[in-house]
């Protein structure tokens, strides 16, 4: 009798576990392409912080630059050639547009209040291609084109509302005050549907230790309180290192160098 009950129980557990694993695999796959955030973050004054810097490089055969087909408004959008920006490799294999950040920092400096949180729409292209946005901060959209765009920032699972608002050629500057992000999340896709080739990314972040690599592949994180941290990256075409983040130790006033070499996502 007892053995029967035990068998039943074991089976029940096995079933439950199976369900759990099945339900979770979807989520996990998605999470692998997202940024990782600390559970909580407290801003304090950082004295004698350290610095983490480095260069991100690409490894592998660089695919031929894909020229974008300008299917609309050639007079405005077709003045300069435009290329797909999901993988921008510069001199010496430098990889642009990689987010490098601290995954597990729980306290440190406050956001730079004067930093511009802007995306420009110029020559029917978003600039920058990757924009970091502190959670709850208003994003400003500029339109320097004589064309109508629609700013379409996708809706997310974590209750950061979808933004999809038309910005005509008459509206040079639009602050998206009504659409403040609520939770740390990202990166989230940005699109202009009118000009389907226009794509960019935003990330809603809870602390200021995020950097986006420039055309030389360089990044710098400054005023990091002394300690040991997990250093993560995200790149549109190369993915993340969420499975194996790099551990760095920062000393007071010191500088740590950490380079990365990224390959195309499988």
């Amino acid at each position: 009798m007892k053995t029967k009950m035990l068998t039943c129980l074991i089976l029940l557990f096995a079933f439950g576990f199976g369900l759990f694993v099945f339900a979770d695999s979807h989520e996990k796959e998605e999470e692998m392409n997202k940024l990782v955030f600390p559970k909580a973050y407290k801003s304090t004054t950082v004295k004698d912080g350290g610095k983490i810097s480095g260069v991100v490089k690409f490894e592998g055969e660089v695919p031929e630059k894909k020229k974008l087909e300008i299917t609309k408004d050639p007079k405005v959008c077709g003045v300069t050639d435009k290329f797909d920006e999901s993988l921008v490799v510069g001199d010496g294999m430098a990889l642009k547009n990689t987010i490098v950040y601290l995954m597990d920092i729980s306290q440190g400096k406050d956001f730079d209040k004067d930093a511009k949180v802007e995306i420009d729409q110029k020559d029917c292209r978003f600039d920058p291609h990757v924009q970091i946005i502190p959670v709850g901060t208003v994003l400003t959209m500029l339109n320097n084109d004589k064309a109508t765009h629609n700013v379409h920032i996708f809706g997310t699972k974590k209750n950061n509302t979808e933004i999809n608002i038309q910005q005509t050629k008459n509206r040079k500057k639009m602050r998206l005050t009504r659409f403040k992000s609520k939770n740390a999340e990202g990166p989230v896709e940005v699109k202009c549907d009118i000009h389907g080739w226009m794509k960019a990314w935003v990330a809603y972040v809870p602390h200021p230790y995020f950097a986006v690599t420039n055309e030389k592949g360089e990044f710098t994180l400054e005023d990091v309180p002394a300690g040991t941290y997990k250093l993560g990256y995200w790149h549109e075409a190369c993915g993340t290192n969420n499975k194996e983040p790099v551990t760095v130790t920062v000393t007071a006033g010191g500088e740590v160098k950490q380079d990365f070499t990224l390959k195309l996502k499988k």
Binding site: N150, V151, H152, I165, Q166, T168, R171, D193
Partner: peptide
């Protein structure tokens, strides 16, 4: 793709 519209 349908956005909200503001006055152009």
């Amino acid at each position: 793709a349908m956005p909200m519209f503001e006055d152009p």
